[in-house]
Computed example of a mutant assay.
Amino acid sequence: MRMSHRATAALAGLLLTGLAASGAARAAAGDDVAEREARWKDLRQSLFGDRAVETAKPLVRMDLPDRANDAALVPLTMTMTDKDRIKGLYLVIDDNPAPLAAHFTFGPAADPEELKLRIRVNTYSNVHAVAETQDGALIQTTQFVKASGGCSAPMGMTDDEAMKGMGDMRLKFADPASGAASPGATDSGKPIAATLMIRHPNFTGLQMNQVSREYTPARYINRISVTYGTQNVFVMEGDISISANPVINFALRPAGKGPVTVVTQDNQGGRWERSFDVPAASH
């Protein structure tokens, strides 16, 4: 049954009130290790079933602020210490309304040594990066972050303004001449660093428009596919925990031929595609 706009707004309001109350309670007990472990145990079972999730010798190092300056734009760097073993990466923000923020699957054209992106953190929460190895093992890293209201923070503009240019994409490559952000990129076989920027509001469904005073329906990127020629670089399946206007820093192996093609999709059926030429490496 399709709900009216008013009913949808009322439901969003009730959900937001409940989330705020439960978030405040969790924040008050945010340093309770036992509570956080119990939450993760439930999430782990929901996401991975009976598969073991190891903690020894983590394969991912996370760089996150201990306390977020802006809970809607929290910078995250994930460094893979044994990149050739990793075929996928799960990013879980335990106490967000939708805890599974992103699932990356790496292809043969990826150089998965480092990923950078910006996330929303709704309350005091553990953040888990779970690496999946080529042989199917799951190995986790955990960091605790203090934040508040990242998923309900308003955009600070009208919905129309936030959606202007939605789907526009840019892809910047490190300067091969300077080697900036990609040491050794001028040498054959070295990874090529890239920064992907996508125009999209990533509405969470929990944000009140400050002009209309109504809750904006959820509209967020749920899939990004990047290919280099005929080879996959990565696929990211995402949810509302990825910040508005996503920026993703990644690297690809230079052996591919042809353009880098990015296909972005959202939960409302939006689809955008664009191809970018890769600068030739000097020898």
Rank of each mutant, 00 (worst) to 15 (best):
R120A: 09
V145P: 00
Q143M: 06
K164E: 12
A185N: 15
A180L: 13
S178C: 11
S178N: 07
G184N: 05
D160L: 14
K172N: 15
L196M: 08
D111K: 08
G167W: 01
E114P: 13
R118S: 10
N202R: 04
V145N: 01
R199C: 12
D111H: 11
E161N: 12
V121I: 11
G179D: 03
G150W: 15
V127H: 03
M157W: 03
T141I: 03
A194C: 07
N122E: 01
P201W: 07
S178H: 11
L138V: 08
D187F: 15
M197Y: 14
D160E: 13
K116F: 05
M155K: 11
N126K: 11
V130I: 11
F144V: 09
L138R: 07
P112V: 02
I139Y: 01
A180N: 14
I192G: 00
A177E: 07
T141Q: 07
Q140T: 02
D160R: 13
I198N: 00
E161I: 13
L115E: 02
Q140P: 11
E114V: 11
S178A: 13
L117D: 00
T186S: 15
A162P: 06
F144I: 09
Q143C: 11
A174E: 02
T158F: 01
P191Q: 01
M197C: 14
V145W: 00
A180S: 15
N126H: 11
T133M: 04
S178L: 10
S152D: 08
I139D: 03
D160W: 15
H128K: 10
S152Y: 15
E161V: 14
D168K: 12
G165V: 08
T158Y: 00
G165H: 10
V130R: 00
D135A: 10
K190H: 14
A181N: 13
P154F: 02
G167L: 04
G189P: 01
P191R: 02
S148V: 02
P201L: 10
R118A: 09
K190T: 13
H200N: 01
M169Q: 06
P154L: 00
C151H: 07
T158C: 05
T158L: 06
P112T: 01
A137H: 08
K190S: 12
N202A: 06
E114W: 04
R120L: 09
C151S: 08
G189V: 13
D135W: 05
Q134V: 09
T141V: 03
A177D: 10
N122V: 02
G150D: 03
D187R: 15
V145A: 05
M197R: 15
G136R: 06
L171Q: 02
G189L: 04
G149P: 00
I119A: 01
P154Y: 03
G165P: 07
K164A: 14
A193Y: 00
M155S: 14
T195I: 11
V127E: 03
M155T: 12
G189I: 12
K190P: 08
E161T: 14
A185S: 15
P154V: 03
D135S: 09
L138W: 12
P154Q: 00
F144R: 13
F173N: 02
K190C: 09
S152C: 10
L138T: 04
M169R: 05
D135F: 08
D168N: 13
I192L: 04
E113N: 13
D160G: 12
G136C: 08
A177K: 09
D187N: 15
K164P: 14
D160A: 13
S182W: 02
L171D: 01
A131R: 00
A180F: 05
A174Q: 05
G156S: 11
D159F: 07
A131G: 10
E113C: 14
